[in-house]
Amino acid sequence: MNYHQLKIDIIEFSKTIGIDKIGFTSASSFSELRNRLVRQQELEYQSGFEEPDINKRVEPSLLLPEAASIISIALAYPSKMKIRVESRKGERRGIFCRASWGTDYHTVLRDRLKKLEDYIHSRVPGALVKSMVDTGELADRAVAERAGIGWSGKNCAIITPEFGSYVYLGEMITNLPFEPDQPIENGCGDCNKCVDACPTGALVQGGQLNSHKCIAFLTQTKGFLPDEFRGKIGNRLYGCDTCQTVCPKNKGKDFHFHEEMEPDPEIAKPLLRPLLFMSNREFKEKFGHVSGSWRGKKPIQRNAIIALAHYKDETAVEDLIQVMKKDPRPVLRGTAAWALGKIGGLVAADALNNAKQKEEDEEVLDEINKGLSFIQ
């Protein structure tokens, strides 16, 4: 088998199925990454969403014993909406991060990887392959960096020369011995804009992230959001793009190569108030196909309440009172009480005082008292 020619053929085929960039690397251990992951674990900086077994994240042979190479792929996604909707008084909107625009990227990348697998099997019927997107064991960024897709930026994203950091990543381990590509030289230089701009200081230093302070992580949690972060979330419903939007390497980068990734503005930037009373079925029908729905509607609804407080939206007071009085979930009742205090006014104050007499949950009562303290 002429693996050099096969590699060329795979690269050409990848272009025909909507893969925007492809790279190859060896399946040797990611030893440097292991040290970083151990340190992250010691500092308790990990989000908890990662593969817990560090060995599986750095040893491809544990996932495919015959592993010889890894193929890394990248798909560019849009950074701007073709159709814009405005957030205005009485019709305030939240925002999903760009990585949650269009069809769930896991679905899109798995489609491309499956087509690539089928092509490889058509050329080498006995080939062994194992593909994964970011819910898999391997660290996508480490693979992409070593395969020459881009460099690992200070914003903890892979930055490609062509598409900036607006790329989705996936990889395929195989037993075929392809010649590895060369990594790209780090292009961040002295720039520190992402670290300086992070709203919560989650970027401890260039390339090191404390996930528990990261807004992208915080928007996915299900409990009460810590007080120190509520004022930082703004109108974000899922994820955060600040460290990408301030990056000079992303200036002017906006690609619309894939129809599945085009955002519906009413989904990517939805009205906030209708979210508060959405049923599970309605939520699944509207948002079920986007990656930002994976934690269910509760975090989105909590974040919508915080966004209404951010806007001090007086038109939402009656809705928030209903949530505080009737929602069976303490997190939403309590967050609504906090939001009413932030918005303020006599109606909100009366509702909070009435709720204080009837509420039995201690955490919700604490939020009611916080709300009252903002008004008094």
Rank of each mutant, 00 (worst) to 15 (best):
S79E: 14
Q46I: 10
E137K: 09
F277M: 10
A348F: 07
E360W: 06
G334K: 04
P52H: 00
T174D: 06
H310G: 08
L372H: 12
T200C: 02
K356C: 05
P263F: 07
K193T: 08
A316P: 05
R88P: 01
L128R: 13
I368C: 01
D9A: 11
R141D: 09
F30H: 10
I233A: 03
F257S: 04
F255W: 15
T16E: 12
R295T: 13
Y238N: 07
Q40K: 06
G207P: 00
I83N: 07
I158C: 03
D9M: 08
S87W: 14
E179P: 00
N303I: 12
T16I: 03
F24K: 02
R123W: 07
E228Y: 07
L64I: 05
K249C: 03
P299S: 08
G292D: 02
R302I: 12
V143M: 03
E262L: 14
K154L: 00
G18F: 10
T219E: 00
A67W: 06
S122Q: 13
G292I: 10
N280Q: 12
K298Q: 09
Q220G: 06
I17D: 10
C191Q: 04
T174N: 03
K251I: 15
Q41Y: 06
A268G: 04
I11S: 07
F283V: 10
L340N: 02
S291W: 14
I184C: 03
V129E: 09
T245P: 12
S28E: 13
C188E: 04
N175L: 01
